[in-house]
Write a protein that binds this DNA or RNA. Sequence first.
DNA 1: TGCGCCCGTGTACACGTTTGCACAAAGAGA
DNA 2: TCTCTTTGTGCAAACGTGTACACGGGCGCA
Lengths: 329, 329
Amino acid sequence: MSRKRITSKELAELVGVSSATISRAFSPDARIGEETRSRILAAARKYGYQPNAIARSLNNQRSRLVAVVVNAIGNPCEAEEQQLLVHALQARQLLPIILCCGDHSDRLQLMRLAATYQVDHVVIFSDMVSLRDAVDIFPTTKPIIVSFEPLDNEDVSAIRIDGSAAVDEIVDRLTTNGKSRFTYLSGTSSSWIDKLRRKWFADALARRGLAFVADATGTYSYDSGFKEAVPLVHRFKTDAIICGNDVMAIGARDAVKRVLGKSVPEDVAVVGQDGIAMAAWDCNDLTTLSLDHVAFINAVVELIERHQAGDDKPDTITLTCSTRWGATA
Amino acid sequence: MSRKRITSKELAELVGVSSATISRAFSPDARIGEETRSRILAAARKYGYQPNAIARSLNNQRSRLVAVVVNAIGNPCEAEEQQLLVHALQARQLLPIILCCGDHSDRLQLMRLAATYQVDHVVIFSDMVSLRDAVDIFPTTKPIIVSFEPLDNEDVSAIRIDGSAAVDEIVDRLTTNGKSRFTYLSGTSSSWIDKLRRKWFADALARRGLAFVADATGTYSYDSGFKEAVPLVHRFKTDAIICGNDVMAIGARDAVKRVLGKSVPEDVAVVGQDGIAMAAWDCNDLTTLSLDHVAFINAVVELIERHQAGDDKPDTITLTCSTRWGATA
DNA sequence: TGCGCCCGTGTACACGTTTGCACAAAGAGA
DNA sequence: TCTCTTTGTGCAAACGTGTACACGGGCGCA
């Protein structure tokens, strides 16, 4: 049953043409007789012939593969974006290769492996990889950086996110409601994104003569949010916890309510970041700094399309965050 | 900056050997002088040479690419499994190509596109694609079916899930607690998995002289669980809702509590399926028919490794479900 | 010295496409 | 009829590897 796939030369023999003509039958704007083409396509269907994309890529110098570098697949925020991106790629006949860099696995080696497949584009969602490594490993493919790391390199395209205005709104409401002992629960200690997000809040606080009274570091997970929230409340008497993502915010809220027996937002307000679908669930109803994921991915896709069209001029697109008002702040 | 990637022939010239020797330097068990190899590797590092995997694949007839067919990336249950699988593949120097078949996109065309890339293995998580289509589109690659569809084809490997024992436990507790008006909320009308899961419960009920008093169909989403639960309680007076997955169960629970003002599990019990991490969150604490995702993916990986080793004999591995007891039933 | 063997390397071909060039046939314009 | 363009096709050369085969040299052994 597992018979070999038929090649263009074999099909050529069966139809009675040359293999070059087979190839032409499959490229839409090639010079070929209409009658010949339909004869070939019929035979291809009959014998199950499909052009070999590996061979084509070798010849073309275009693989139509896209490396997508992410921290994790499970993380809801990333997952929503990945879903949108994968759909957009598929609609353009591009195939995504997912590189999962979050864990212990050797990121650099993994990216090098993907680079050997001559991917046409690289989309870097993960802020665990540095820009320097990215351009080093993909010298021929201009990467698209999606993390918010400040770029000093004019050679890569990027999406920049600006949340300062929305953050100002959030802090405004919190202070209006009497909050003053703010704390920040970040998701990781080594991430540019996390540092930048924290800075938005710190700046907004500074404009009002305030500052964070304490910091904690989790792992972007529910459990870490749950666990880290306890000392923030217990020891630092915080009345407003700003969390690095929505999942940790949900964990923190649960800890405040269940473990500490306090009410949210009256005793302690909790603010998330990302604006994932789950934040809007009735049982969560989270106040969160949210990003329009559709607009975000649209921007990425636009950059990819420019690259694909041969426009190598790098560009930076800036998006602004909005606020989802919920019952937690 | 975007200079072309260096080829093995060019590197050969620089080092003063033939391109064949370059190739040998990169295959661990080739006959090559130790001194020559280290000289080549040093030069490769210096000039940034990496063997071209596309060319190698063409030559080898092995791409080291794996097509992973899924319904969606956002779905938490699938996401957890995808994460595990991707990690396992990466550890084996295999690269995953994700095919997202859930939506409107033309599944068959998408799979055909992936097939042209000569993937070494195909893992089908989605039960939206039929077995017949799979073997048709990947004639040369024996696919690994992960959906639970009853297989009449001896040519594919499969993972089979058996939840009947755990389901019996669950139904036992529910009836002991006085539940009698069971309803089933499925995630889709066209899925084998969903039908099979429903059958486990229906059989367990039948053994006790019971049957579902009503059925509803959602979309595996929180919102659909929320919406579909209302009429089940309101109109059919159900006191136990079995949901097709955990996310819908959370939605159903919220609707029962917030919209209908009833208590869970006293008035209405809610049972999920999948055993995703979120089910164990403090705010959810869901009773659910759960699968050991690690064991599940281990089984998949074992099948892949056999295929990779050239053992084409198809095999079926059976896993059993367990129960996570929570506060909702 | 002569024979056989292993080691290290080069030569050449194959993998399955795409595409520039050549060329025959057909049609158009004079 | 002669030339010029257009159309459809084949030939052959890439694309960058891996590897079977050949071959020269060094070594052991008789």
